[in-house]
Amino acid sequence: MRDENRDIEIRDEDLLAAYELGLLDDDAAHRFEAATRKDASLLEELFEGAPAAAAMTADPARLVAVLRAVRAESQPSTYARLRGFFADLLTPRILASAMVTAAVIIALVLVPTGEGKFAGLAVLEPLAYGQIDVRGDAPTADRLFHDAMDSYLVQNWDTAAVGLEQAIAAGAGDASWSRNDQAHLYLGSARLMAGRTGSAVTALQTAAVSPQPPVSERASWQLVQARLMLDDGHGALIELEGLLNSPVYGQRALELKKRLETP
């Protein structure tokens, strides 16, 4: 049994997060609220954090999915081990042949020849990204990712794409690298912005099956735009179906779906 009487003293401000998330009993909540009347900076902090706190408790399942996915990423899975096996198997020569074949298929099958009727509906815009510093001892893949995202943020799409390809290659042998899906997302976006729509699709498809909703949904939305650019209205509709329940993209997906279905 835990001896609550031997617990440490706690300052009012240390109750903030527990208060926001509704964990305090009535006495502790009352104590914290009284403090917000006396301490303007504490009230200010509560005010600034209120939208995020409300978003957290309004849809906990979504954030739980994000957190579980990140947790799973950090533990080598069967998939990661298999991925490592195939990465070893794919020598540069085999990989180059496969890429050439894929490029030919994409060029023949997917790239439209004329002005598409759906391309006008596509909204090509970069994805938001907040650059985060990396530690000096960070893995190579993280550092390459960071540098590539510097290029992405200044809209140097080709350099960003090359850097992200390098980051993905560097991370391929490291089962604990947690940015693989994120790197594919931004690689797809960079290629899309650079006008390389066909190759953007391949990267975005990888990101679209990420277990992290922020990655998978953004990738799906970018895929919709890529499909539209490729004049593939049917493909865009299929991607949109998967976004209809998204709290972030749901409304936009519904509106676009209606426009696509309007003769």
């Binding site: 617990d7 440490i8 003293e9 401000e13 240390d14 109750l15 903030l16 997060a17 527990a18 998330l21």
Partner: peptide, 9 residues
């Protein structure tokens, strides 16, 4: 309980 709140904070 209190160190939990502090950690959360």
């Amino acid at each position: 309980r209190n160190t939990f709140y502090v950690a959360l904070h």
